[in-house]
């Protein structure tokens, strides 16, 4: 397709606008986190006095480091379980005919749509009773409940795209159904697996409502909740700088995740399987 110069300029303008809209708050936080305390409120984008004090401070505090560790463990475990169970469930939904299939898909979608806020109260009570309150599993379990349907949904869409023939070819070639799944289906669904993994990871990484309601100490408190408990040096100073620094730090894993997997999330991996 040929584009005229005018069209190109238009698209470039629109893209810049959208990117700016998304990136300005991030830049702002980054700039805040790098400002010296005395220039915090000066309103300039480029810090007049650079300092890494804020970063040093948050890593000195156990509060943040513990929360960071909690966050990583909770998010990774949730992602791993959701992907393993989710891919099996999605495979069944995409490939097998069984009674109640529609109902299952519908139910899982409905669960994903359920407003979190209406569940916080009951979960809180139950967790207190069964001793899951303020523990990491206490967060992982409800996160799974919400991220599994998401994973199942995205994964089954990808599985449906994989030609049936490939799997049957594998079976005729001597693979057990499990081998066919592991060696043919999963590698081909890799873009879908990574996409779902990122979605689930981000969901559990940034979740705030359950995190703040179901934790009370450093035991299980994740970063989003911990940020809310940041205090300044004294009760008269605002923790703005350290919150900004923490926000930057917690963004980093997400950016790394996306950068690593981005290359793998390319469509067209199945090109060449069957004559197109």
């Amino acid at each position: 397709m040929q584009h005229t110069g005018k069209e190109k300029a238009w698209w470039a303008g629109a893209n810049t606008l959208v990117i700016a809209f998304a990136i300005i708050p991030v830049l702002w936080i980054l700039s805040l986190s790098l400002k010296d305390r005395s220039t915090l409120g000066d309103g300039s984008v480029i810090p007049k006095k650079w300092s890494l004090d804020n970063y040093q401070e948050i890593f000195k505090a156990d509060e943040f480091v513990n929360a960071f560790v909690n966050s990583i463990i909770v998010a990774l475990v949730t992602t791993a379980i959701a992907i393993v169970i989710g891919s099996m469930a999605a495979y069944a939904l995409a490939r097998l005919e069984f009674p109640g299939k529609r109902l299952m898909l519908g139910a899982s979608l409905a669960i994903a749509m359920f407003p979190l806020i209406s569940l916080v109260g009951p979960i809180f009570d139950v967790w207190r009773r069964v001793g899951l309150f303020d523990t990491r599993p206490g967060l992982i379990i409800p996160y799974l409940a919400f991220s599994l349907p998401l994973a199942i949904y995205t994964l089954s869409a990808f599985f449906r795209e994989i030609p049936w023939d490939l799997e049957q070819a594998a079976q005729v070639d001597g693979a057990t159904p499990m081998q066919a799944f592991r060696k043919v289906i999963i590698p081909l669904a890799a873009p879908g697996v990574f996409t779902s993994a990122i979605l689930v990871f981000i969901f559990s990484w940034q979740e705030f409502l359950l995190a703040i309601s179901l934790t009370s100490t450093d035991n299980a408190r994740t970063v989003p909740a911990a940020l809310a408990f940041f205090t300044g040096e004294s009760q008269f100073t605002q923790p703005t700088g350290s919150i900004a620094a923490a926000a930057v730090v917690v963004t980093v894993p997400i950016v790394i995740m996306v950068l690593i997997f981005q290359r793998r999330i390319v469509a067209g991996l199945t090109a060449g399987a069957v004559k197109g």
Binding site: Q171, G174, L188
Partner: peptide, 30 residues
């Protein structure tokens, strides 16, 4: 009997080659 226990080879109309494997790996798969 499951397909894998029948010791039969099939050529599909669509060829059904494994796209993530090289030609060598495709042929060596069985």
């Amino acid at each position: 009997k499951a397909p894998k226990d029948r010791d039969i080879a099939m050529v599909f109309q669509s060829y059904a080659l494994y796209p993530h494997m090289t030609v060598r790996e495709n042929m060596a798969f069985p």
